[in-house]
Each structure stands twice: as C-alpha cells, then as structure tokens.
C-alpha cells in the first residue's frame, strides 16, 4: 500500500469542472492499492495568472501549500499540469534566489508556517509509470481495450520546463501506459503542443485555432479518442470542440478522456464511478470498444 499527499487543485476538486478526474483517479487508485490523502485546507496554487498580478503573492500562494505538505512528507502528487508547473517553478525559484526565499519565508511566518526541507511535487502520471509501473497496471486489467486507438495527449506543461519526468518534446509515458491497457497509442505529432490553456477565456480565437490543429493531428493518426493528463486540456478540447466545429466547419467527434478514466475502463470499473457521464463529447465509441 502506497500513500501520497494529494493536491487536487481547483478544477479537479469536488466542486470543480474536472471533478471526474479526481473521482476516476480515486477509483483507479483503489484498484492499484494506492491511498491519496488530500492536503487539508489547501488553497489555489495561484496558477500562471496570479504571478503577473502579484508576483510575491503568487509565490506565497504556492508556498503555503508546500509548507502544509512538508509537514506530511517529502512528496505531493497533483493531477493538474498547471499546479504541477507552479509548484515546481516555486521550488526552483526559492532555491535559486535566496532573497526571494527570505521574503516568502517572512510572509509564511506571518501565518505561522515555515517551508524549509522542500517538497517534491509530482504528477499523477509520473507516479503511475514510475512508482507503480506498467507491469503492475497490466496485471489489473480485466477488460483489455484491445483495438482501441488512443491519441496520447500530454499537453505542454507536465513535460516542459526542465523538471519534467519525460522528454520535453517526445515523451513516451502515456504511450506505455496505453499499451499496458491493451489499447493502441496512435501517432500524434502534436502530442505536446499547447491547447490554448487559459487564453480560451480572453483570447478565444487563438485557443480555438490551436485546438483545431490538435484535433486534426489526432484524427489523422486514426485516433478514436484522446486521453489527457490535465483538467484544463480536457475542458478545452471537450467542451469547446463544438465551437471548433462551428468556427472551422469541421466535424470532429473526438471523445476526450482523462487517462485515469481509460485505466478505469480497462480495470472494469463503472462508467458512473469514472465520471464518464460528464464528458461533453459522448464517449460511446470508447465504451463500445470494451465489449
């Protein structure tokens, strides 16, 4: 039994739009004998936007969570790419700029906290492929997804900034995971390109165009569905797919699943439990592939 401190992040929290990520993750974790202990009273990591409004405040938002996690152990796991980047970025800067560390430390002290030893923040995918391993995952498959063609979508942030756990432009972790579920990863040249991220809100056109390219690339590779590792990527590609179709006169009907949902299907878990009913683009084809 492995135990991890878990940081869901706003989107994947019980109130968030990507709550299916956490619920499917928890179901899959039970099968793999992992316990995820949610960090008590965590706060929003601040994400990228806060840094541009209040730089020091943003580091403090991230550091409060790190300080809380430090009391529980040397590691923390998150399913969200944005949280993953923000925490790792904060750790990196606190190490590189002692001055910054001093100020953040001073602010934390006002809340009775200290952050000294450091907490390694890891992504759920990283934990699955490194700590659990493909073999152990394969052993839990009861309904092999044989023949299902899956586009492995990493998005940009979990592999990029230099502390990522896989190659920044040619990662293979998801492919290995998909293969171990019996499904077939498709060729997807844009698998580490940006989905538009939070710019979907203020600069919709930019994000829609990026999504069109991604969906085209995935479709060209013959994918029947796409799996993501990030709540924002999932929301963009799933909820805005209709808008992409309207804008570019395309006819994508590409189900967009969290990789944990795909794992759950192979493990024989229920659709409801995995939150598959929360997909905007109906995942019918994926479900059919199971039988």
């Amino acid at each position: 039994m492995k135990e991890y401190t878990y940081f869901p992040g706003c989107s994947s929290s019980a109130e968030g739009g990507a709550r299916a990520f956490t619920s499917s993750l928890e179901a899959v974790a039970r099968v793999l004998d992992i316990t995820l202990k949610e960090l008590p009273d965590w706060n929003c990591c601040g994400s990228t936007p806060t840094g541009s409004v209040d730089e020091l405040g943003a580091f403090c938002l991230a550091a409060r969570n790190l300080a809380l996690a430090e009391k529980l152990g040397p590691e923390m796991v998150t399913p969200c790419s944005a949280c993953y980047v923000v925490f790792n970025h904060t750790n990196d800067y606190l190490k590189r700029y002692p001055d910054l560390k001093g100020r953040v430390g001073e602010a934390l002290a006002a809340g009775g906290l200290t952050y000294e030893k450091g907490v390694k923040v890891r992504h759920v995918l990283e934990v699955f492929v490194q700590d659990i391993g493909e073999e152990a995952i394969r052993a839990k498959v009861v309904k092999s997804l044989t023949g299902l063609k899956v586009a492995p979508y990493y998005g940009c942030q979990i592999v990029r900034p230099g502390f990522g756990f896989d190659h920044p432009e040619a990662p293979t972790a998801l492919e290995r995971l998909i293969t171990s579920l019996g499904a077939e990863p498709t060729d997807f040249p844009l698998k580490t390109r940006c989905c538009g991220g939070s710019l979907i809100i203020p600069e919709e056109d930019i994000a829609l165009d990026l999504m069109r390219r991604l969906l085209e690339s995935a479709a060209r590779g013959g994918a029947e569905c796409l799996v993501t590792v990030c709540p924002l990527c999932q929301t963009n590609l799933d909820a805005y797919q209709g808008m992409v179709n309207r804008k570019f006169r395309t006819e994508f009907r590409m189900p967009v699943l969290f990789f944990t949902q795909l794992m759950g299907l192979a493990f024989g878990l229920g659709e409801k439990e995995l939150g598959l009913d929360r997909c905007v683009v109906p995942p019918g084809r994926v479900l059919a592939a199971r039988t």
């Binding site: 601040g46 936007p49 806060t50 541009s52 409004v53 938002l61 939070s198 809100i201």
Partner: peptide
C-alpha cells in the same frame, strides 16, 4: 482575466 483570476486565487479557491 488575470486580475479576476488572481482575485479568486487569493481568496483560496477558484469557482469556475
């Protein structure tokens, strides 16, 4: 957008 985001982030959580 960044300002609104940060407003909520600073309150501890982001209600989408």
């Amino acid at each position: 957008m960044y300002r609104v985001f940060s407003h909520y982030a600073r309150a501890g959580s982001l209600p989408e």
